[in-house]
Simulated scan of single mutants.
Amino acid sequence: MKPTLDPFSWALIKLRRGRIRAPCVLDRVPRVSVVIACDNYGHYLRQCVDSVTRDQPGIEVEVIIVDDKSTDDSIAVARSIKDCDERVRLILHEQIKGHIATYNDGLDAATGEFVLLLSADDLATPGALTHAAELLVAEPSVGAVFGNAFQRRFACEPHRWKKLD
């Protein structure tokens, strides 16, 4: 049987934007490791890293880029990002290991209290890591947090992409 809430409780949840409890102020700065798997996504990598290092207040971010022997300019892009930001580390595979091994290598190197796995062609929304860390710190019984996925739709035309949104 599904638990039910009274109308007052539902109103409070709606006012709190879906949260059962009001957001809490963090009493410490949690460290979040972001493992970014890259396989020939050099043209997306800078934007991906920017999405997890900017507009994420109140947390300490560690970025681990794991390149699975890309043949494009991914390694050069990753090195330039690393040279400009001390929070970024780089792991380079000497041979192709595949997606799971790439993530596992990043997880082995992570030192954060919390971890986010991303592909280099993914983005985090502003504040997403902060909100997730707030929830995980406030509710130790929570083991995973996820948000809504946003996608832009494109249609393929001969030699062009057309945005549908």
Rank of each mutant, 00 (worst) to 15 (best):
K97D: 15
Y103K: 11
G143H: 04
A155Y: 06
P23F: 10
K162M: 11
L107N: 02
D165W: 00
T130E: 13
L107Y: 02
E113R: 06
A11Q: 03
L118F: 01
A109P: 03
G106L: 04
R31V: 14
D108N: 01
W10P: 00
P23A: 15
P7T: 14
L5G: 04
E60K: 00
D108I: 00
V145Q: 05
F8V: 15
L117H: 10
K163C: 06
F146L: 06
T71D: 11
H131F: 12
R17K: 14
L45M: 10
F154R: 13
I65P: 01
C48F: 00
G143L: 13
D121H: 07
V61G: 01
R153C: 14
S119Q: 15
R17C: 08
F8H: 11
D68P: 01
I100K: 00
R152C: 04
I64L: 11
V142N: 02
I36S: 06
I96N: 06
V52P: 04
C24N: 09
D121T: 07
R16E: 08
G127E: 05
L136D: 03
K82R: 14
V35S: 08
I36C: 04
H99C: 11
R21K: 12
R89V: 02
R19A: 13
H43N: 15
F114G: 06
D121N: 14
V137S: 05
D108L: 01
V32T: 05
I13C: 10
S33K: 01
R21Q: 13
L164P: 09
